[in-house]
Amino acid sequence: MKLNYQVKAAEAGLTAEKVLRQNLGFSRGMVRRLKRTGGVLVNGQAFYLNRRLQEGDLLCVNLHFDEFTDAPPQPIPIDIVYEDEHILVVDKPPDMLVHPLKHEPLNTLANAVLYHYIENNTEPVFRPVSRLDRNTSGLVVVAKHAHAGFRLTSQLGTGELRREYLAVVHGLVAQKQGSIDLSIARCRDSKIKQMVHPDGRRAQTFYNVEEYLAGNTLLKLRLTTGRTHQIRVHMSHLGHPLVGDTLYGGREEGINRQALHCCRIRLLHPITGGPLVLEAPLPEDIRRIFNKI
């Protein structure tokens, strides 16, 4: 996979490294790897990155580094919402890990994506930019190469990559919209459970009431941080745990997992810079909650 870029008049006289770092957004680590591998050609010729460019020069950057992810590919169907040569966005079902674990190496999103990559002659490296709990469904963004991964991860920090969720919570949330800015830390007596704690890492969640459901509330939520179990912990702390989320005080009411779904992602394409808005409909098990009510 290669990235071609023509030097503009305003960039004439800059070194190739400066154009890569400042204008194309390559990380320091990626530039070091390009130096080691001779991964940049200018006008079809090998080129030292400390040399200066001229207007109209054509940079060709190799984005492939013969890497691989040590997970066995499996022919598991995946629901692809968007794909091009730089990114993949999938609608992950519930009851699926994103990454394999030592004691659970199979049937994860990584296994499925790697099989898809191999079938389509794509570098077999799994680089998820956003992640979801096993039992949270919805959109997951995956970068197909290290440069796209760096650019998209940077967008998480700036808020340009925005994740929106739908959740069904117990009780009627009185305030129609609001924000929760409470730090989260791991519970000392648990390897999994998190809690609101002043010594934890800052976590911020915005929410809007979408609909009242006869004793429950459908919320749309947006994250500006990505702490473990963030929505689940914040809503439980407010006295409105998610339906089905027994770890944080919820009750199983027609669903045996937390009723949480990443329904929309907004981002800037890591190469073109164009905006992308991608959506995933509510899965069947959450829709059944509505039918039951």
Rank of each mutant, 00 (worst) to 15 (best):
V31S: 01
T246E: 15
V173Y: 01
S236A: 15
Q230P: 10
L161D: 01
T153S: 10
Q74S: 07
T122V: 14
H269D: 12
D91N: 15
I78N: 09
D84N: 13
L278D: 14
F47Y: 15
N43V: 03
N107Y: 12
D91V: 08
T136Y: 09
T158Q: 01
L3I: 06
F206V: 00
R131A: 00
H197E: 14
L59R: 10
G44M: 14
K35F: 11
L34W: 07
I76Q: 04
L63S: 02
T136H: 04
E279Q: 13
Y82P: 10
T108R: 05
R163G: 00
H170E: 15
F290N: 04
N120Y: 05
S190M: 14
S27A: 06
G254E: 11
A9R: 12
A16G: 10
L139D: 06
G215L: 06
E67R: 10
L106W: 02
T272V: 06
V98R: 04
L3V: 13
I87S: 07
I293N: 07
G25T: 05
L238C: 04
G215T: 14
R134G: 00
A148H: 11
F26S: 00
S183K: 11
L49A: 03
M1S: 15
R51F: 09
H64W: 03
A10I: 14
V233G: 04
A167I: 04
G138A: 07
L238P: 01
E210T: 02
P241C: 08
D133G: 06
H234K: 02
G149D: 14
Q74R: 08
N208A: 06
I289C: 05
D57P: 04
V40R: 03
M30Y: 13
T153L: 04
L247E: 12
R188Y: 07
R127D: 09
Y207E: 04
L152T: 09
E210V: 15
A12Q: 14
P75R: 08
D133A: 01
Y207L: 00
E211D: 13
N208S: 14
E119M: 14
N216I: 00
G244E: 08
F290E: 07
R36H: 13
R163E: 13
R151C: 08
H261N: 06
R287T: 06
E11M: 07
R266L: 12
L247N: 07
V90M: 10
L101V: 07
R287S: 08
E284P: 03
N121E: 15
N256K: 14
Q22E: 15
